[in-house]
C-alpha cells in the first residue's frame, strides 16, 4: 500500500467506521441496560484504564474518519491548489488539536 495511495484512506475510513459502529452499539446497549446513575458514576467508569483506552480508541477512530471524509469533500469541491492546501491544513490542524485535547482530557482523568 503506497503512502499516498487512495487505498490507505479507503481502508482507514472503513476500519474506523467499524470501530465507531462497535462503539455506538456498545454505548447504546449500556444506556439501554444499566446506564450510569449520573455524571459521577460515568466519570468513575471513564477513569478505569480499560475504559480510558476504549475512549481513546473511539476518539482516534472518530478523528481519522472525519479526516478522510472531509479530505474527500475538499478533493471534490476545492480545486485551486493553494486554497485546497490551506483548507486541508486548517482541517488537519483542527482535528489534531481536537484529538490532542480529547486525549489529554481522557488520560489526565484516568491518571
Amino acid at each position: 500500500m503506497r503512502l499516498l495511495s487512495g487505498q490507505r484512506a479507503f481502508v482507514l475510513q472503513r476500519l474506523s467506521a467499524l470501530v465507531l459502529l462497535a462503539g455506538v452499539a456498545a454505548a447504546t446497549l449500556r444506556l439501554a441496560f444499566g446506564a450510569p446513575a449520573g455524571l459521577a458514576e460515568f466519570r468513575a467508569w471513564a477513569a478505569q484504564p480499560l475504559a480510558a483506552a476504549v475512549l481513546l480508541l473511539l476518539a482516534g477512530a472518530l478523528f481519522l474518519h472525519a479526516w478522510v471524509g472531509v479530505r474527500d469533500v475538499v478533493l471534490d469541491y476545492v480545486h485551486p491548489l493553494p486554497l485546497r492546501t490551506a483548507v486541508l491544513l486548517l482541517v488537519a490542524g483542527a482535528l489534531v488539536l481536537l484529538g490532542g485535547w480529547t486525549a489529554v482530557i481522557v488520560v489526565t482523568h484516568a491518571l
Partner: peptide, 9 residues
Amino acid sequence: LDDVYKLYR
C-alpha cells in the same frame, strides 16, 4: 489505478 483520483473518487 491505486490513486486517490483515478479510482477512489
